[in-house]
Design a protein around this nucleic acid. Structure first.
Lengths: 133, 133
DNA sequence: GTAATTGCAAAAGATTTGCCCCATT
DNA sequence: AATGGGGCAAATCTTTTGCAATTAC
């Protein structure tokens, strides 16, 4: 394992991700980090997100139809719900059955290491009809 | 519905996607298209991919850990298997159960329009062990 | 003829990288 | 003090866009 240092920048970035469920973009994390470290640079944010991703402490999410990536602190397996209207991403349960589905039955598949499920639709906030009036 | 013309460029691009299962990138489609239309430009490829995506004739796939998008001609619903070693993408079955899972039970989810499942792992070609020596 | 579409090149956006300085260990 | 990491800016990469010329209808 490679040596690493606990810099304030790295700590702040990881804390931001651990304290939110908003799946922020690198730019959003940067803006948030500037509140406590005004001189942090966007490059540092990217470098740390890359590092933390390698350490499996952070996950990168490539949202449907969106330009950049979004990030979240590592959590137990879950799926993502993407609202096509407001672009919000919410964590939702990942059906256990997907793990035992037997993907290896497909001729191309030798082994499976990860599953990513994106459910796209409209979120409650964007569909006011759900709760009457 | 908006007017559109059947240009040779558009036809060639759609044909390329319909004749392959390799989920090519825009750049790859461009290189392939140049074989029959040497003067086609990359911008035209992007513009047509965008148009065909709006018409739901083409789907854009944002692969895990990869820079750009990849594309495929519209087909019945299926999932994608991504080989983490060679970056190949293969079509695999999408469990029917995912449609009836009842996503709307999640408080954030109002309605669902699409599902995207990515299974990540090693493909048969990259794991020679499967078929001995 | 007319308007959609192309080719080209410039622009935009997101992410990465080189370099030199600074701070953690 | 050694060196991993930061800041800054330039570089890359992918995708988009403005515009004049072209072409499908």
């Amino acid at each position: 394992m490679k040596k690493s240092r606990n810099t304030r920048q790295r700590t702040v970035i990881l804390d931001i991700l651990r304290q939110t469920r908003s799946h922020p973009s690198a730019e959003t994390i940067y803006q948030e980090a500037r509140k406590s470290l005004p001189s942090i640079s966007l490059g540092t944010v990217y470098r740390n997100l890359g590092f933390l991703r390698e350490q499996k402490m952070v996950k990168e999410i490539r949202a449907n139809e969106e330009a950049g990536s979004r990030f979240e602190a590592a959590l137990p397996p879950h799926a993502h719900f993407h609202c096509g209207l407001c672009s919000a991403i919410h964590d939702i349960p990942l059906p256990d059955a997907l793990y035992d589905f037997g993907w290896e039955r497909s001729e191309f598949v030798s082994s499976v290491t990860d599953l990513e499920l994106h459910v796209i639709g409209a979120c409650a906030d964007c569909s006011p009809s759900s709760t009457q009036n």
